[in-house]
C-alpha cells in the first residue's frame, strides 16, 4: 500500500507494510525491543537493527540475517514497544519476503523444522509427530538427536503411530495451495 502519487517503485518495504498493516517508519530506534529479547544472545543483528535495515532500504541485509529465523515470536518486543510497533509481526513479514525472494536462509534447520511441521498439517489437517520427526530428520540428516526421549513417549502412548486425518483434509490442502509462499526468484 504505497500512497505516493509520483512514480514509486514498489519495494520490499511496501510488501512488509502490506503483510503487517503497519509502517516500518513508525519505529524510532529506541532499542527497548532488543533489550528484552530472549533470543538476542543467539542472534547476529539486534531485532531493532532489522527494522533499521528496512528503513534504510538495506533489504538484503535484513533478509540475510540469522536474527529473523531465531526470533521465537515471543511477543516481548511487541508488548513493550513505546510506539506500539508490532515487531514480532514485522519479523514474520521479513521472513516471508525473504522466502518469496529466494534468499539463502541462515538458520537452515529452523526453516526445515517449520517446513516439516507444515507438511503434516497440509497432508492430514493436524500435526502428526511421528511424520514430523521423520521428515525433519530426513531433511537434516540429524538422525540421532532426541532418540533418548522417544521410547518413553511411545510407551506412554503419546506418539501416535498413525496420523489423524480431518474430514476437511482436502479443504486444508487447498488453503495451503492458495496461501503458501512461492519463491519468485
Amino acid at each position: 500500500m504505497s500512497h505516493h502519487n509520483t512514480t514509486h517503485v514498489r519495494t520490499i518495504s511496501d510488501d512488509i507494510t502490506d503483510i503487517t498493516s503497519q509502517n516500518p517508519e513508525l519505529c524510532y530506534q529506541c532499542g527497548k525491543c532488543s533489550a528484552g529479547c530472549p533470543m538476542r544472545n543467539y542472534m547476529d543483528d539486534a531485532p531493532n537493527v532489522i527494522v533499521r535495515y528496512i528503513q534504510l532500504g538495506l533489504f538484503e541485509k535484513a533478509m540475510n540475517s540469522a536474527t529473523i529465523w531465531l526470533c521465537a515470536g515471543c511477543l516481548t518486543c511487541s508488548s513493550r514497544c513505546p510506539k506500539n510497533f508490532d515487531l514480532a509481526k514485522f519479523m514474520d513479514a521479513v521472513r516471508e519476503v525473504a522466502l518469496r525472494n529466494g534468499v539463502k536462509v541462515k538458520e537452515k534447520t529452523i526453516l526445515k523444522f517449520h517446513k516439516a511441521f507444515l507438511k503434516q498439517i497440509k497432508n492430514h489437517g493436524r500435526s502428526y509427530e511421528v511424520g514430523l520427526v521423520r521428515d525433519y530428520k530426513m531433511a537434516t540428516f540429524d538422525l540421532f538427536s532426541d532418540v533418548e526421549n522417544s521410547p518413553k513417549m511411545l510407551l506412554d502412548g503419546k506418539l501416535n503411530i498413525f496420523p489423524h486425518n480431518v474430514k476437511g483434509k482436502d479443504k486444508i490442502k487447498s488453503i495451503f495451495e492458495k496461501t503458501e509462499v512461492k519463491k519468485c526468484k
Binding site: 517449520h114 507444515l118 496461501t179 503458501e180 509462499v181
Partner: peptide, 11 residues
C-alpha cells in the same frame, strides 16, 4: 501454531 505465521501470514 508457531510455524504457519513464520512463513505465510495468509496461511
Amino acid at each position: 501454531a508457531t510455524s504457519a505465521h513464520v512463513t505465510s501470514h495468509k496461511l
